[in-house]
Amino acid sequence: MNAYFNNIKNGIQTVFEGMSISLASFFVHPITIQYPEDDISSAEKLKETYKGQLGPMPENYRGILDVDLSICTACQLCVKACPIDCIVIDAVKCDKSKVQGTKSEKPAVKTRTCTRFDIHMGKCMFCALCTLACPTGAIVHTKVFEMNKYQLQDLVLSFVSEEEKEKAIKRDSELKVEAAAEKAAKAAKEAEKTEEEK
């Protein structure tokens, strides 16, 4: 009997309280972002619209990847770090500051340049392991997250254009020729030397 009346009493009381809570939240400003209209990247705007409730997009947001080829040394560490092999790098030896026209303090060093740097964003899981592994900080996550494409193939980001690739390959072959010439010269010199010795 007691339980019976307790049930009624508690039922009415808790429903009463519940209704007051849901009505109270009726008057609170919604926190959903009206996405395409509202600019979510700027903290100030968000603060204005949502009264300081929502955090802005953080600086270290892990969006799609970007590569700064001018500092990439084609060391392939990111390729090794990626657990699902979505980065592909082909590289040739060449002095890249000369090829890419970037001005560096140091004289052009012979180094490697990518002739292909593809990231398959359709496979990538945004784990940041590649960015953590990169010694130069060339590969980074950007704050871009809108990347809908019509075709899967479009999700493969190629950072080296055909032109650059050709330039690099040409320079590579030039270098090879140079190296070969040098070698030949050296060999000739050596041959001369040995001949002289004889």
Binding site: M19, S20, L46, G52, L54
Partner: peptide
């Protein structure tokens, strides 16, 4: 009484989160 409860609950809900 009900309106009083609504007011308290509203105040509780309006405590800022301060993430921004």
């Amino acid at each position: 009484k009900f309106i009083g409860r609504i007011r308290t609950n509203y105040k509780e809900q309006s405590i800022p989160v301060g993430l921004n």
